[in-house]
Amino acid sequence: MPYALLIAVLAIAAPLFAQASESWWGLAPCILCLWQRWPYRIAAVLAALGVVLPGRLRVALVALSGVSILVSGAIAALHVGVEQHWWPSPLPGCAAPTAGPATQSIDDMMRSLAVAPAKPCDEPTYLIPGLPVSMAAMNLLYALGLGGLALVFARRLARR
């Protein structure tokens, strides 16, 4: 299997697995969870283009897909830090909803609530009961491995 195709398949597998975990196991994503998926989608498109484009373009696209995957890893690292309460989330939508100022009426508070409650980003989601590795931490490990693999593949392609 060509390097670019392997990276494309493995990159799109990550957001598909995350979406499947929502459907099959009822896991709810937070905003940072959703943000971690976009770099994989971008990486999959870049790597897929690398399948059909020749030479140096292929090398550049595989390398860029690796960088994109590492961006997801950086978001995952931020997310793990938020889950562990090492720092607060930079996104306002990550906080648990609050009632707002005391001067608001009940009707005002009800109108300000989201249609669906958001999962706070500092509440880890665990896929495997008893295994203290959150979905964000699993994504961090996957992104580091896959992003690194893509960069190694790009280097091998450049040597050909």
Score class of each variant (00 low, 15 high):
G148M: 04
V152K: 07
L127K: 01
V62I: 07
E83W: 12
S65C: 03
S72C: 03
P15D: 05
A63S: 10
Y40K: 00
G130H: 02
L127Q: 06
A143R: 00
W24P: 00
Q84G: 03
S105P: 09
I42N: 02
M110L: 13
P129L: 08
A28Q: 10
I69P: 03
V62H: 04
A136M: 11
I106E: 13
L149W: 14
S23F: 12
D107K: 12
A43W: 02
S68H: 04
A99V: 10
E83L: 09
A114Q: 09
C33M: 13
Y3D: 13
A60Y: 11
V51Q: 10
A158W: 13
S112N: 14
G81N: 13
L113V: 05
A63C: 07
A43N: 07
R159N: 11
L46S: 12
A158S: 15
D107G: 11
G145R: 09
S65G: 11
W24Q: 08
G148Y: 12
R156Y: 14
S134M: 03
L157V: 07
L149F: 15
G66E: 04
L49N: 03
A74M: 08
R37V: 11
S68E: 05
A44G: 09
P101I: 03
P132Q: 13
G93E: 12
W35E: 09
I12N: 08
P15Q: 00
W24A: 12
Q104N: 14
W35Q: 06
A136S: 15
V82K: 02
A13Y: 10
A137W: 06
G93C: 05
G93F: 03
W87D: 06
V52G: 05
T103C: 11
P101C: 00
A102T: 09
L140D: 06
I42F: 15
S68N: 00
R58F: 03
D107N: 11
A102K: 14
S72T: 01
L49H: 02
V71N: 01
G145T: 07
I69H: 01
L127W: 06
L6W: 10
V71D: 01
Q36A: 14
V9N: 12
A77H: 01
V67F: 06
W35I: 04
L61P: 09
A95R: 10
L61R: 04
L32N: 12
A116E: 13
L140I: 03
N139H: 08
A158C: 07
C94H: 02
A28R: 14
G81D: 07
M110W: 08
W87G: 10
P129N: 07
A11F: 05
G145K: 01
E123A: 13
G81Y: 05
R155T: 11
S89D: 08
V52D: 01
A99L: 14
T98D: 08
L157R: 02
N139I: 10
S65H: 00
G93K: 13
L57I: 09
L144Q: 08
I12G: 11
K119M: 11
M138D: 10
L53H: 04
P90S: 14
V82T: 04
A116D: 12
W25N: 12
C30K: 00
R159A: 14
Q104W: 15
L149A: 15
